[in-house]
Each structure stands twice: as structure tokens, then as C-alpha cells.
Computed example of a mutant assay.
Amino acid sequence: MSVWDEVTGQPQAVETLQRAVRGSREHADDPQAFTNSWLITGPPGSGRSTAAYAFAGALLCPNGGCGKCESCVQVRSRSHPDLTAVVTETLIISIDTARELVSRASRSPMNADYRVIVVEDADRMMERTSNTLLKAIEEPERTTVWVLCAPSETDLLPTIRSRVRTVGLRTPDVSDVADLLVRRHGVDRAVALRAATESQSHVGMAARLVTTPEAWDRRDRALVGVLGMASVGDAVRKASEWVAIADEDGKAASEDRDEQERKEMFRSLGLETGTAIPRQLRGIFRDLEENQKRRAKRATLDGVDRILTDVQSLWRDVLMLQLDAGVQLVNESQRPEIESAARSSEPSRTMASIEAISVARERLAANVPPTLALEGLLVGYVARQAHA
């Protein structure tokens, strides 16, 4: 057992990070062997945060990442006193969070040789926030290690990129993801392969599919009927259904947590759950509710983005058949509909539909209401099909 066991299909990255761990022990003052500021990049689902925490675990473990000791267990549960984990649950990382990180970075470790700060979504930092962290990353304390995660180097400011050592991840093979699902969740390999394929090797989404049947059902509902849409009315109804599915997905992920946070707030303030909240404490509960609303908004947008990724895979399958590419379909369960759509259209129109997904994402990023952005995407698809 090792902290690296969960890092799937990334042998080169693991080798680089393991070499750095050895360097941190043997040549900590040699910048060629070890540096205190890192950036882990890779496409969605490649396991950026998994690699980051494996690296953190190996740095904090007295045995270099055994995966069994108390330190490794604490890193897995994110409770290690020398680990700071920044998980973005809203649309951006706030400047207050950045200031708190700078403060923590100046403190000496309590139990281990290092204090490790993992920022899972460093691409969600605005310029002002990034500049707040700049000096701490450029001239870190000798015992502080920064590990930033982002889809690519270009998602960060040049001033940050020039001060970190980058480790790039690739999309893991379907078979590697399936192996992980079988090992971690004990599912049948055929189920694991389907989940790995339909998630397009997205480790987190594949795990969600095999552990949450409702998530798989929502994916199937989102895709059913898409290729057969023939009117603007069909497009408008499907867009509305997608938003409802995304809301449902977000609520499924947050409802239990929201309730638990509210109960914990009552407990921490010495109140009985469900009792009237004293007037002087209502502001605290309002702040909690506002934070939960911001988190819910991001959860819905994340759900919409997952649907767009799945629909892109559907249109990709159509294009692959039109081009006679001879590759495996992502959505094999929908082969008859995909074959019919491939026969009734042309590659250029299918490619235009795929490219339109990028436009929809740009509109969502510009705060266009999800329903409008999705209606525009699907009405365009129907119009192209009508001229096929």
C-alpha cells in the first residue's frame, strides 16, 4: 500500500513527484532536486487533486508515503495539522482566503518536516488574489510547500507560472480507470469499463457513476432524445429539462451537507436544533445561508457543464461514425440512435454542433442564464439538422 496507489495512469508524473520527495529529504537546499512551489496541471478528471494529496502525503509521512501510518490516514481525511487543503466551493477563491493562506504559510510545521498547502482550483483565483499569494510562492518559507492545481499553465498569471515547477498529467486510459474502480469500489469490471468509458476517463465522474445510481440515471435522462430533436419546441423543452437535471444533481450533492452545517451551527452556538434563533445571532445564519446559495449556484453550473460534456461525447460519436474512424463509441448503449443521426447529417454540421458547445460555455462564463445558453445551443442544432 502506498499514497501513490490512487494516482491512476500517470507513471511519469508519479516518478517526478517521488524524486522530489526523495530530494526533499536528501537535498532539501538544492533547487535542482527540490523546490517549494509546484503546479499540477491536467485535463478534467485526470486526477490533479489526487496527485497533489499523494505528494502532500509523501512529504508529510515519516516513511515517504507508506499509506498506512497515522500521518497518511490524516492526509486522506484532510485532518493533518500540517496540511492546508483549499477546496473551492464557490465560483472564485476569495482574497480573504488568499490572505489566510499567506498567514499559514509563514508558520512552522507542527509534526512533520513541512507544512503543505494544496490549492485545488488555482485557476479560480482573480488577478488580485493571485498577486496576494505571489510573494509567498516566490519566496516560500523553507518548511512550506505550495501545491497548486489547474487545468493548464495558461489558467494562471505569468508571474505565478514563472515561479512554480509544473508537473503535467494526461487523460488516463479507460482500462486504468476501470482498474481503479474495481480496486476501490469492488464493482464488476464490465460496469467499471462502462463507467470509465462514459465518463471519458474522468476519474471522479466514473467513481460517482458506479457509487450513485441516481447520477447514472440523470446522465441517461440528459442524453435521451437529443439526437431526435426536430423542432424549436423540442429544443426549448430539452434545455429546460437539462437545467432541472443540473439543479437535481446539485441538490443531491449539497442538501445533506447544508443540513449538517446548519445543525453544527446550532450546536456551536449552544442552541437546540430547530429553536428560534436569537436576533443577535441571525446575521451568522444569514451568512451561512448566503454561502450555501453561492455553493448551490456553482453546483448547478457544474451540473450543466457535465451535461455539456456528455452531449459533446454523443455528437463526437456521431462524427466518428460519419468519418468511419473505427474508434470505440463513448455511448455504446445509444448506438442505434447514433447510427441514424450519422446517416441523416453531414460531418460539417456535426462538427459545428460540437464547436457550439464552446460558445455555450463562454456564455455561461459570462453569466448568461443557463436556460438561455442551452436553448441557443439546442436551437442551433435543430436548425442545422433541418438543413441536412
Rank of each mutant, 00 (worst) to 15 (best):
V232H: 13
V232W: 09
G233W: 10
D234T: 12
V236S: 08
K238A: 07
A239K: 13
V243T: 12
I245C: 07
D247P: 00
E248S: 14
D249M: 09
D249F: 06
K251T: 13
A252Q: 09
A253E: 14
A253K: 12
A253R: 14
R257G: 03
R257P: 01
D258Y: 12
F266D: 15
S268C: 02
S268R: 08
L269A: 01
L271W: 07
Q280P: 01
G283W: 06
I284G: 01
F285C: 02
D287R: 08
D287C: 00
L288G: 03
N291T: 10
N291Y: 00
A296S: 10
R298Q: 05
A299P: 01
T300P: 00
L301P: 04
D302V: 08
D302G: 12
D302M: 09
V304N: 09
I307H: 05
I307M: 03
I307A: 00
D310H: 10
V311N: 01
S313H: 13
W315L: 02
W315R: 01
R316W: 11
V318S: 14
M320S: 12
M320R: 13
L321G: 07
A325M: 12
G326C: 09
G326A: 10
V327H: 10
V327S: 14
V330N: 08
N331M: 03
N331C: 04
